[in-house]
Design a protein around this nucleic acid. Sequence first.
DNA 1: CGCAATCCCCAAACCGCTTTGGACAATCGC
DNA 2: GCGATTGTCCAAAGCGGTTTGGGGATTGCG
Lengths: 343, 343
Amino acid sequence: MGVTLKQLAASLGLSPTTVSRALNGFPEVSAATRQRGEEAAARANYHPNTRAKSLATGRAQAIAHVIPVSTSHEIVNPVFADFIAGAGETYARQGYEMVLRIVPDDAEAAAYRDLVARGSVDGVIVHGPRTRDRRIALLAELGIPFLVHGRTSDVNQPYSWLDINNQRSFHRATQFLIEFGHTRIALINGMAEMDFATRRRNGYLRALEQAGLTPDPALMRHAEMTEPYGYRAAQELVQLPEPPTAFLASSMIVAYGIRRGLSDMGLKLGRDISVITHDDELSYLPNDGDVPTFTATRSSVREAGRRAAAMLLQLVDAPDSGPLSALMETALVLGASTGPAPR
Amino acid sequence: MGVTLKQLAASLGLSPTTVSRALNGFPEVSAATRQRGEEAAARANYHPNTRAKSLATGRAQAIAHVIPVSTSHEIVNPVFADFIAGAGETYARQGYEMVLRIVPDDAEAAAYRDLVARGSVDGVIVHGPRTRDRRIALLAELGIPFLVHGRTSDVNQPYSWLDINNQRSFHRATQFLIEFGHTRIALINGMAEMDFATRRRNGYLRALEQAGLTPDPALMRHAEMTEPYGYRAAQELVQLPEPPTAFLASSMIVAYGIRRGLSDMGLKLGRDISVITHDDELSYLPNDGDVPTFTATRSSVREAGRRAAAMLLQLVDAPDSGPLSALMETALVLGASTGPAPR
DNA sequence: CGCAATCCCCAAACCGCTTTGGACAATCGC
DNA sequence: GCGATTGTCCAAAGCGGTTTGGGGATTGCG
């Protein structure tokens, strides 16, 4: 256990009040006393007990990240790791703690209520929003500052969020493929109930429509984003009577699967068939270099984590600074996986 | 903010003492009062304030996971996500909170000292141990219960850990390849300073030695486990004058890279060249099915998380239950990526 | 019926910090 | 020179729980 304020004060012949003020930069202590206090604190490796401090101040100095795990799929989305690393940087800088809750989706409401009732955190970040997500209404009702990583579509009340421009990204990517002469473009998307998947599909559909192309339901898939999912999708679609000449993938992992599926069929990316993927810039799946392997809609999810955390902390400091939102644009980076449609 | 104990007690016309006891199962309250208390608590959604409770009891009811991020590489190991999901299950069941710290490796010592001095947690889980890891000595000195996910090699004091049998896994995998006639086997390992990498290499070397084969330094690589790393390693090694006929990969991500590198060279896995990888059973990189794509040394890192958390909690409850350790064996599962050495 | 034991319950102290409301000197203004 | 500021410091009251040390009302027993 560490030194307590009382002990530290006693060792200096001062009252806890004075030492507390000295360390917290209040004006009513003399410069000499302040310095003495600071030196003693450093020497004793004194750090105020978090729980006592936050009990006294009413602020937990902690933010919760609630990560839903679908009870049916049990898949932990790998982008969380990088997002959280980004958020962690911000918290560290501002003296906040990060608490993590992994909750099965049938226990989410209870988890939020519990978190708020216990007062364990000052704010929460909501991960993996669905198209219709009841968590926003719940959190608003509970009256705790929160920020959504992503958005949801059917909520009428305002809320704070940070998202990438999914619709525009996929709209541009689709347009790009169309300009290359592709007319049959497959969309290998995330689970249908996820909000990002909906927006991406909308962007894709709109680009097709604007080009006068009719979308083919057989070319659109929704599922959890695993490597084998991409593999199977590629293999099956390529064997259609009228196969696609290009693929749009919702994540690098899926893109890997697609590439494997295609190359197993003897198709070469960028020549026989084109692939564009969304790239979250996960640190262990880099897609850079002079010519990235994949043409991609790129946006750093780690940077998103940093910014989301900063926004939430501002919200915690000043809840009336109102709903905050940030829409990050993605870059469409050209890689080796796209080319003109073969004829 | 939630209801306080005082308010709840007042609403029942009882003292806080009595209600506290009723809810915590102490014997000195009548059955009727206890029930009244419990019902009222449920109705009011009362949850004791975490900070107040732990201040009073001296227990934080929280565990920290400290995740080192190398300042030079900035890579967040993706296995953390699944490990943490497993640990989270255990914590949820036992009423513990999980706090996460992402720390640059030059700030680790400070992070641990801070954590302990503030008394924010009852125990910590150490991730990513290196071959020589000073953190073990530091934590022992700080006197906080801790458990290492993995092991370290140069520490003489006992400590608690949970690890997979890396050495035996790679020993068996290498043996298996040798029995298939492979004599030139490449090892595409993780970073040299990581303890798991050392152990895997040892297993590999011993198997070679036992078979009377001399290891070739040109066939052994160490680096951060990314996909492009596997890709480059495969491409370069295959072009050696005496190329390997088999690869041992330290993770699925690396194995994906290797496969891509090989198939770009026109080599087919399992026929022209063999690959065995370690498989952590990450949820989004499944390697199962009737015939898994990769022959692999398999062990669920999620299950490891569950068990590690349970062990640490036991250590927290009874610090004298002594250093605990668990060595999980891996399964060598046969997939489609291995076959007899071509001649 | 009287006294002790048993049941239930409560007041108050405490965990380690912050913060309010002074107290006491030294300094200032006139 | 004297009252009013100003500058420093401290005692005490919380924050929301748990826990110690009783205390009053029942019950049990002789």
